[in-house]
Amino acid sequence: MANLISWINIAVVFGSIVLFGAVGETLTEKAGNLNLGTPGIMCMGGAFGFVGAYLYETSVGNPNAFMCILVALGTAFIVSALGGLIYSFLTTTLHANQNVTGLTLTIFGVGLGKFFGTYVIPKGAVSTKADFATKIFRARIPFLSDKLGVVGDILFSYGFMMYLALIVAICATLFLTKTRTGLNLRAVGENPATADAAGINVTKYKYLATCIGSGITGLGGVYYILDYSKGTWATASGTAIESLAWLSVALVIFVRWRPVHAIWGSYLFGLCYWAYQFLPKVIGIKVNTDLAKMIPYVITILVLIISSMRKSKDNQAPASLGLSYFREER
């Protein structure tokens, strides 16, 4: 039972990181922007959020928990949103190819994140740690996690970022399905010419959706460093964040652009990813490490094939996804 609970716990934390990226990318793609720069943006968010928290706690004699959280999340969100702004300017204003721009942003973002994250590592060391921020981000709910036995271990043994990921996913779903602004955003992603003719500012929606979506994606990077990695930034941290961010892109396709479904989808990805370590302990079946880590991607491919065969409009990507909008051709 202990091994099963540990498997669920690590899968939920792992999946919540992916969930931030998936929700952010979903908002971006609903506006018709295919941002393959998600890994770079998440790495930028993780690096700058860590650096912000680290510099705050080392420069203040008595750091405040709320200010530490505000600095880490605020820095990550703003820097990641700036990454989305760069993408938006190149693809929406200059009409650059979205695929090329996104991949270039990934290379740029990972490199930038590694540079600034490594900047605070002491000379001669390979890693550094933000101890105070880690304590705050990994703090559990005392009564619920300690007094409810197995239920507490499964539902409440997490830092606040896991619950924030759930709230963000639910709010994104309500925004896209229950608000006029969300419906306008979806219209922009489906047919920007028609939306433009109806008086919707296509450029504004594309910019805002991409910048806000990128900011949310960056929060996943902070969660990875200050909780999942126990507050440690190492020279290889950027590459690790990049691999999880690609899972976020895959998750968007897996759940068919529905943020609320990304909740269970992200946890499924986490269970599959860590199957190689816990399946032998839980049911005594040895699993090849490399093959187990492929499972989330294989599942995504199968879902993509099945949904394409069904040809249901509800299961398809936004019609203008990846395409530049030229207003003069309307």
Rank of each mutant, 00 (worst) to 15 (best):
V100G: 11
E190P: 00
I225M: 08
V282E: 14
A81K: 11
K147F: 00
Y54C: 06
L85Q: 02
L90P: 01
F132D: 06
I253V: 13
I285R: 13
D131H: 03
P63Y: 03
I10E: 10
A65F: 00
M294Y: 04
L90S: 12
S312W: 01
C272H: 09
I263V: 09
R330C: 04
L208E: 04
P259G: 09
M162A: 05
R258S: 14
K313R: 15
F50H: 03
I241N: 13
Y158I: 07
H95Y: 04
L226E: 11
R256S: 14
I301N: 11
V150P: 04
L323E: 13
G322W: 02
I5Y: 07
A2P: 00
L166V: 05
L103Q: 08
S157N: 15
L70M: 09
K293E: 14
S248C: 12
L90F: 08
S127D: 12
T128F: 01
Q277R: 15
T75L: 04
G152M: 14
A187T: 08
I167C: 05
V51F: 02
T181Q: 01
F137H: 09
N191V: 06
S6M: 09
A236Q: 14
G46L: 00
A317G: 08
F132Y: 12
L94D: 03
A11E: 00
I170M: 03
G265A: 05
R180H: 10
A193D: 07
Y325I: 02
V222M: 05
K313T: 14
S59L: 01
I299Y: 04
T181E: 02
G199C: 06
A31P: 15
M44Q: 06
Q277D: 14
V255G: 02
I225K: 02
Y87A: 08
V260E: 12
G152Q: 09
R256C: 14
G213T: 09
F108H: 05
F175Q: 02
F254N: 05
S320K: 07
Y158R: 01
A11K: 11
G21L: 13
W274R: 11
R310A: 14
F20Q: 11
S88Y: 02
T217Q: 11
S266G: 07
S88M: 05
N33F: 06
